[in-house]
Design a protein around this nucleic acid. Structure first.
Length: 129
DNA sequence: CATATGACCTATG
DNA sequence: TCATAGGCCATAT
């Protein structure tokens, strides 16, 4: 992952690069939660920052933002919104099944390996595996 | 400087 | 399973 320069707001938001890098690692057909991304990016519990970073992600990196959902297994947009529909379509196109408007995290959650990420993440993730 | 606002999370009942 | 409360924190106004 290289340097990202946003053409949208004319700044280089380096503080968000770790978030974008982690999101880019989510494999096709899997999902991650905002909180999970925050921990993997070394941001502790600052899950809201992940949502902010995705909202402001530069257009020129084709980020798989749709693979990030909330801890309830739901899409974090109003269900009636077009953004909600777009995200659901993208996920279903990767084989992810929605049941009652929800994704089964036990089935579809991304579980990175210790080679990819530092041990501190897994130390905090007991109960996730 | 003071509030308000989110693509959020966890604990609790 | 669902709703609520409190916490969270960078930006926006």
């Amino acid at each position: 992952m290289g340097l990202y320069v946003s053409q949208r707001d004319q700044v280089t938001p380096t503080k968000y690069q770790r978030i974008w890098d982690v999101v880019a690692e989510i494999p096709r057909g899997r999902v991650a939660t905002y909180g999970q991304i925050a921990r993997l990016a070394g941001l502790g519990q600052r899950a809201r920052l992940v949502g902010y970073a995705l909202h402001h992600s530069p257009i020129e990196i084709e980020l798989a933002w749709h693979r990030v959902i909330n801890a309830h297994g739901k899409i974090s947009f109003p269900q009636s919104s077009e953004r909600y529909q777009r995200q659901q379509v993208k996920l279903e196109a990767e084989g992810i099944v929605f049941k009652n408007g929800r994704v089964d995290l036990d089935t579809y959650r991304w579980r990175p390996t210790t080679e990819e990420f530092p041990d501190e993440y897994f130390a905090q993730e007991r109960g996730l595996q």
